[in-house]
Design a protein around this nucleic acid. Sequence first.
DNA 1: TTGAAAGCGCTAACAC
DNA 2: GTGTTAGCGCTTTCAA
Lengths: 360, 360
Amino acid sequence: MSEKVKKRTLISDIASHLGVSIATVSLVLNGKAKQSRISDAVAARVLAYVQEVGYKPNQLAKSLRTGKTHVIGLVVEDIANPFFSTVAALIERQAFERGYRIIYCSTNNDPARARELISMFQERHVDGYLVVPAEGIEEQIAEIMQEKTPLVVFDRYLPELATNYVVVDGAQGTHAAARHLLEQGFSNLAFVTTSSAQTQMQARLDGYRQAMQEHGLPETVKQVAVGQDAETVITDILSFIRDNRQCDAIIFSTNYLSIYGLEAIGRLGLRIPDDLAMVSYDDHDLFRLYTPAITVIAQPVEAIAKNVIDILLEELKNCAGEAPRPVQQVLLPPTLVVRQSSLRQPAGAARKARKQEAAS
Amino acid sequence: MSEKVKKRTLISDIASHLGVSIATVSLVLNGKAKQSRISDAVAARVLAYVQEVGYKPNQLAKSLRTGKTHVIGLVVEDIANPFFSTVAALIERQAFERGYRIIYCSTNNDPARARELISMFQERHVDGYLVVPAEGIEEQIAEIMQEKTPLVVFDRYLPELATNYVVVDGAQGTHAAARHLLEQGFSNLAFVTTSSAQTQMQARLDGYRQAMQEHGLPETVKQVAVGQDAETVITDILSFIRDNRQCDAIIFSTNYLSIYGLEAIGRLGLRIPDDLAMVSYDDHDLFRLYTPAITVIAQPVEAIAKNVIDILLEELKNCAGEAPRPVQQVLLPPTLVVRQSSLRQPAGAARKARKQEAAS
DNA sequence: TTGAAAGCGCTAACAC
DNA sequence: GTGTTAGCGCTTTCAA
């Protein structure tokens, strides 16, 4: 009376059905038929039957035996952030094409969570790690390196550790944005960033500071505390803008701060760029389509994904060779995408410029 | 001369170091010390030593033995789409808290890719599946069901298959949007959707059709072919709008079509809502902050994530019991979030309304 | 050419 | 209370 649950086919089922040994089936399945001089006829029979019954080798058993899982652990800050989800999607695609799968998790910049995630990846024996490191996880990263598991860190790096990394030159990006604003005639630039000590945030701040110093201009910096709720951040930025009306332009150090900033500017009833010019980090549909369109320091997401995965796969290949691989550290240039939000121009010109962009 | 690679600690190392048996260590580690009447002293010694050397059981071996991986396979359409990345982030968090990990992949609505992904999840013996089904993967889904592996489908469902699912009432959403537009005095509504036959798209279209029929109004529907590049879609929508100037409002069936639509409307130099009102599916920073703010039919992302994971975990728990679990099919209501893009109002009022929303 | 068999690291009967 | 041991499903060496 009991439902017969269809049992999963095993390699032994294949072997016994075909009257050959398990080893033969395994060899054929792993493309080692030729080198083991298994007859073409047998190989063909095996392949045909495997196809017929839809046999899928148990990767758990395979991994346990071979020590390879063909899984890459991807740790990002927040998969719901368009920057990370875009990079993740690109990484996923490239990894998939080369036979690797991704397990991903978001840390939300919580070091405890990051540690848990890395620990879980270790337990599952991922073949390699791709990590956007939260602060305070140096120890876990060091452990991965000591195990000699391939690792590439990106978006930011850990100064104390000589890991492979792929980051974007934030100092250059902010510096270019500041220069652009000054060229446009804005003279009092503010910089809104987070209180984080992460390298990418520090670099972006440094670019601003350097530009201000070069021009002998005062620095007006707002560091928003991390981990607060949206409303708090918005009112925080709003107060900052209101208290610094001498500023005629703001650079935001990351996409979500800009989004909160747009809210704050809207509530204050200020017009962009006439009352306040702005530049954001990271491109985003919102910035492209907003009226006025927002000038951004765009990070090269494709290049980030490509470099990250290339370096990791290279290490994965070399793993057996145990060659003393030099550490790969890549610094990619960002691109300043100038739109209306940072242009000093006569009223009405904005609309015309918009049309031009559309026509191009 | 060779670098001594620190060997991973094994359960046998723990046992021999402590002078107890492997079984004792295993039992303690799995919280079965009490029921196996292992002395508290021994249990404490084991735990202390495990802690000290940072022993991490090999989950591959454990899974191979127990048949449980504590991994959930999540298949979405596109992780870079904010709707999916938001739901994924929420699902991930809840799953993590309950001891499950996520492997995710994007199908990009390609059935071949979806099949590959599901096949890969089968090989890796995920404990359960969460799937946004691409068209044409009924067979793979049926296979999962036959294996009796827990499965929840979401965002859309497969009409031929009696799976658990969690979807949003798209007909109701579009119907409400249409009624709202008509109440505002717009009288000629267009609907822009994809050529996809997926249930959620059909439901959204049905809601529009029904509303039009109820009011004896003509239907003006544009079905954009799926899988085209951005520029083609934009010009396609642009032509549609230009050829249908009698329409004074458009409802877009999904977030990315709206984004393309905003581009097209911008290029045509039309003002929203005066020249053309609009409503989009899915909420998004862009829609909230755009000027004018865009009215949306918001999907309840938290509720989707919660229902999806609750149903799956329930099944996971029942798995051993093999109780004849009834299929869970959940239909969640969307919410119409009215903003300026759909309001018929005197010029200048929009700005005021904006401030009101901010104040609330 | 093919088959037998020894593990990969862990769990959980079942002895003692 | 604790130890022994038979697998989970697969790969791969070595013998036939």
